[in-house]
């Protein structure tokens, strides 16, 4: 079966979605990611969709779920590289993905994650 590869980069996981996913593949990615976060005790997840030409409500939900699930498992998720046409369409569709952090590209996403983790490190209180 097809599979979206999950790259491990130190404390982070990087997923680059390049193909037009069918729904089962998206659900499988969600499972794979939660397993990977737990297995590697990852602190952050970057989902790169810069080559994705379309995000519909199903993929939107997948991203929102990954983000929420990651938070529970202790990993911050950042959605990176959404194309303008995709962003305009998502807004029109009525999805603003309120709880999902975003960044322009992987580099910027990585910066945000590092800063976030550094801040968490100095502040041990939960919350």
């Amino acid at each position: 079966m097809e599979k979206i590869p999950i790259l491990r980069m130190g404390d982070f996981l990087l997923v680059t979605i390049q193909i037009d996913m069918h729904d089962q593949l998206a659900l499988k990615l969600q499972d794979d990611l939660s397993n990977a976060i737990q297995q590697h005790a990852s602190k952050g997840v970057l989902i790169d969709i810069s080559t994705l030409e379309m995000v519909d409500s199903f993929i939107g939900r997948m991203v929102a779920d990954i983000s929420g699930m990651g938070r529970i498992l202790g990993a911050q998720t950042i959605l990176v590289g959404m194309q303008p046409a995709v962003a305009i369409t998502l807004v029109e569709l009525g999805l603003s993905l309120p709880g999902v952090a975003t960044a322009l590209n992987v580099e910027r996403g990585m910066e945000i994650l590092r800063r976030k983790i550094a801040a968490d490190g100095t502040d041990e209180r939960p919350g």
């Binding site: 959404m82 303008p84 962003a87 807004v91 029109e92 603003s96 960044a103 322009l104």
Partner: peptide
């Protein structure tokens, strides 16, 4: 508002 939201989705 839509423009602001679209910008946020893109990471700006």
């Amino acid at each position: 508002l839509k423009t602001v939201t679209a910008l946020r989705l893109m990471g700006a």
